[in-house]
Design a protein around this nucleic acid. Structure first.
Length: 288
DNA sequence: CACCAGGCAAGCC
DNA sequence: GGCTTGCATGGT
């Protein structure tokens, strides 16, 4: 793959192992909206319109400099997904999952946005998670004019920590509102340090994360994988439990047992395996 | 009308 | 410690 700046955009040529639709709809992120031929999203306060035409991806309204310093990392383009997929495809079930979603890339998302997003995900469904996050940004984020429309940044801990549950109720998050406030207050006060979490080993970071009300082991795993780049982590939710029971166990199986199996089977690549399987499980469900 | 949704905390024993 | 229950809200 090569990148080239062209007429106010950065164009990626000979793209492989990268499909925009799969990457944006596989459930890891909640804020990329279909627009014309592509998607518009806000990541870390930057707006981007992206289109894919076969093995060419166009990132509009950006520069080579911004690509190198931000979007390249965001889309995890420094990782060799061909190698990841080759190793994981030794597992027959995973090979089939990869045949469905081989264009998924695990986005390196903003840690704070990731924390709040997965707090909201608890006992919830994906369309409503998206709605709640959109309302959160619309009500409390900063507006960004882009391509003739208004978009919103993700509100900071400092902003959210001043809100009351009543004020936050406009986002219709239900019982999760107090969890969001707890996370914002702990982040703003420095009880959890967003800056130093990335320097901690995974278990220490997990311990920090689960000290927030509303972050249990599963939500923490999602934050570790999507917000902190811990690709060995294997989040298990109801979808993952079902697909793992189907593909590997043939019967109801405890989460602990699935977890130790996944660690054994997928090792340091468990996070990638999780995303391929999660997408596969949801694709099969919705297409039958 | 039940039941479910990328779980979790709190309350039991 | 492990196990059970209630939880806001919106969609089938």
């Amino acid at each position: 793959m090569r990148a080239e700046e062209k007429q106010g955009a950065v164009v990626l040529y000979d793209v492989c192992d990268f499909d925009l639709t799969q990457t944006f709809t596989c459930g890891q992120c909640f804020r990329w909206i279909p627009e014309n031929e592509g998607y518009i999203g806000i990541a870390s306060g930057r707006a981007l319109y992206a289109e894919q035409h076969g093995d060419k991806i166009i990132l509009y309204d950006t520069t080579m400099r911004e690509y190198e310093t931000f979007w390249r990392g965001y889309f995890h383009l420094d990782e060799n997904y061909d190698a990841v997929k080759r190793i994981l495809s030794e597992d027959a079930a995973l090979a089939e999952a990869i045949a469905y979603g081989g264009g998924i890339r695990i986005l390196r998302q903003d840690l704070w946005e990731c924390m709040v997003s997965f707090i909201i995900s608890a006992n919830n469904n994906i369309p409503r998670i998206q709605k709640i996050i959109a309302l959160l940004c619309r009500n409390f984020g900063e507006p960004i004019g882009y391509r003739g429309k208004t978009y919103y940044t993700f509100p900071s801990p400092e902003c959210l920590c001043t809100l009351t549950r009543d004020e936050l109720s406009v986002i219709r998050a239900g019982f999760r509102d107090r969890y969001i406030l707890d996370a914002a207050q702990k982040a703003a006060a420095g009880d959890i340090s967003l800056d130093t979490l990335s320097d901690m080993d995974t278990e220490t970071a997990r311990q920090q994360l689960t000290s927030v009300c509303g972050i249990g082991n599963k939500v923490a795993d999602c934050i570790l994988l999507f917000g902190l780049g811990r690709y060995e982590v294997f989040p298990i939710d109801v979808w993952m439990r079902r697909i793992m029971e189907n593909l590997y166990f043939g019967k109801e199986t405890a989460v602990d047992e699935i977890m130790s199996f996944a660690r054994r089977q997928f090792g340091l690549l468990a996070g990638y395996a999780q995303q391929y399987l999660f997408y596969y499980a949801r694709e099969k469900e919705t297409k039958i």
